[in-house]
Design a protein around this nucleic acid. Structure first.
Lengths: 164, 164
DNA sequence: TTGCTCCTCACGTCACGTGAGGTGGC
DNA sequence: TTGCTCCTCACGTCACGTGAGGTGGC
């Protein structure tokens, strides 16, 4: 009776949630939450309710983290990474994998571009700050915190303006 | 009596919270929350309690967003971006600006490096997937979702493993 | 004076963090 | 059988989202 409600253990190398969490650098709560959302479902549940994962599922977890780091919410991520049991049609399946990879590539490229631009701005700020160190003015309320610069009359680089 | 509890309006070009939010691409709740945390304090409060900001404070808000995007929590960000009223000593002040810029530069470079590596992995995945499209195998439970690849015997690129 | 903006609670939400009390598995 | 791991609630937290009901300012 109890066995009939639980499918048989698949012939895979499966590990318990604690070992999986350690391997993947996460914790039990997060894994349970991801299961609840249908984001990362354990490959098998024992009769006692224990979750069992494939080692390879680490890569799915990593992908979730990457997409979170790019600013996506979990429901948007679930749209991109549908559950494995969803569709058995090979062509549909391949199409969604292609889609997920290309979307990520685009997000990634945009983010890299933005970060490179920000880094250039930070470098400009650091060389400007070197000039400020030799200046007789100081950022304070009365000079609008050196905005604009008392020497050049130009606006400060944004990161310096943020900190003065 | 009421005037004495509120400092006089400074001789700056100040705008109300709604205009500031629009300019900065954020909303009132976020700005009030940042004030509560001491992250971004309005330059002046009217007698009726209205918040007034400098236009240049946009850059501080942008910096907060950048650091959030790099994964920092707001209390860590506040440590990096101390309030302006904190320290009047010029050398101490310059030192903390330099520190904040260099920390951000380091975080940024690490993040860029990681994203570039991820992008390379995604590109490898897309060319591998092109091979998979012409393969007679399909990822399914019985072949451990093509892990390892039935053709090469090698592990799949991680992003493909995540999606198969 | 009217309308629009702003104010302060205060409860809701997302993605978990952190126990409490109880059970499974080598 | 013992110890360690796992289970399911369930309340807490961070960074806001979203009204409710009331007041300020050109």
């Amino acid at each position: 009776l109890q066995r009939s409600s639980h499918p048989a253990r698949p012939a895979l190398d499966l590990i318990k949630i604690g070992d999986f969490a350690r391997l993947a650098g996460t914790n039990l709560r997060t894994l349970r939450y991801y299961e609840e959302l249908g984001l990362l479902v354990p490959s098998w549940r024992s009769g006692g309710g224990f979750r069992f994962y494939r080692r390879e599922d680490i890569h799915r977890l990593e992908m979730i983290r990457e997409l979170q780091g790019l600013g996506l919410h979990l429901d948007r991520i679930r749209e991109l990474l549908p559950a494995r049991d969803g569709n058995p049609d090979r062509r549909v399946n391949m199409a969604r994998v292609r889609k997920a990879l290309s979307v990520q590539d685009r997000l990634l490229s945009e983010r890299i571009k933005a970060l490179l631009a920000r880094r250039r701005e930070l470098r400009r700020s650091r060389s400007k700050l070197a000039e400020c160190e030799r200046c007789q003015h100081s950022p304070r309320l009365e000079n609008n915190y050196c905005e604009p610069c008392q020497v050049t009359g130009l606006a400060l680089p944004c990161p310096i303006s943020a900190l003065f």
